[in-house]
Amino acid sequence: MGFFQKLKEKWTKQADTVTEKFKEGLSKTRTSFAGKVNDLIARYRKVDEEFFEELEEILIAADVGVATVMELVDELKMEVKRRNIQDPAQMRDVIAEKLIDIYRAGSAARELASLRIQEDGLTVILFVGVNGVGKTTTIGKLAHKLKAEGKSVLLAAGDTFRAGAIEQLEVWGERVGVDVIKQAAGSDPAAVMYDAIQAAKARGVDVLLCDTAGRLQNKVNLMKELEKVKRVISREIPGAPHEVLLVLDATTGQNAMSQAKLFKEATDVTGIVLTKLDGTAKGGIVLAIRNELNIPVKLVGLGEKMDDLQVFDPEQYVYGLFADWLDS
């Protein structure tokens, strides 16, 4: 059975709302990306050098990054030779397989994407990222999701810098119905975390979601501040934070690699939340990040509503990109 048949089967069996959401959110991504690949296949009679050149461009346009694209195309060329493929239509399977291979790198997808929520006791999740990627919004959505799963949640307003950030988290707290631990604007974020952990322990909550101020990864002092925040958390609860989630804007280009690298150095990032995937951007850089830094995507943001946060499934992601091929 071809790869896409398998995917399609999986898709039809799994016709739950999650999949629908994913499909909906990615529909624009899909139309433009897969549409282009379809054009490509229709226009070429042969899998030749020009075919690959154009494939290269399609992948670059998805922000996958030049280095990864080159690597991928080289591997595809080998594959074409090995399997003696001449019909461009056959390329669909090969391309999708390779993309998923790059992402998976031997690990099971489910395992990669699941959040490490402790069986019992407090789970602390720290959110980090540059300015304007959607950290606070993601925390609001995740709080909603966890609460719906029956967990008790507490939020820590660690962005004491940006004007209105604390209020923004508070609004989310009200919407979702969870408490927010905060201090005055301008106070030490590490102190807020300390307070929040004490409160979380005292109240016996399941999950503490910690917001932090957005910071550009090349600001050394701000990155040190973040290290301190993490240190305070680890000191209060051994093994915490259980997850450090880097929030990435899907619209971001190659700089996302630098973000992943430097935030990983400072806070040992355990996963990525890819936001704003409901736009026309593809967020292809996550393939390169996974390939180079081994950080998996755990969640994706597909809209502005409370339930627009979904667990990342690489097969669905790639399927989303290629769904037009299947339908055609």
């Binding site: 346009a61 998805a62 922000d63 540059v130 304007g132 619209t251 996302a256 951007a281």
Partner: peptide
């Protein structure tokens, strides 16, 4: 526009 925007900057 965010200076870090990737290829999608054109569409936006």
């Amino acid at each position: 526009v965010d200076a870090m925007t990737g290829q999608d900057a054109v569409n936006v």
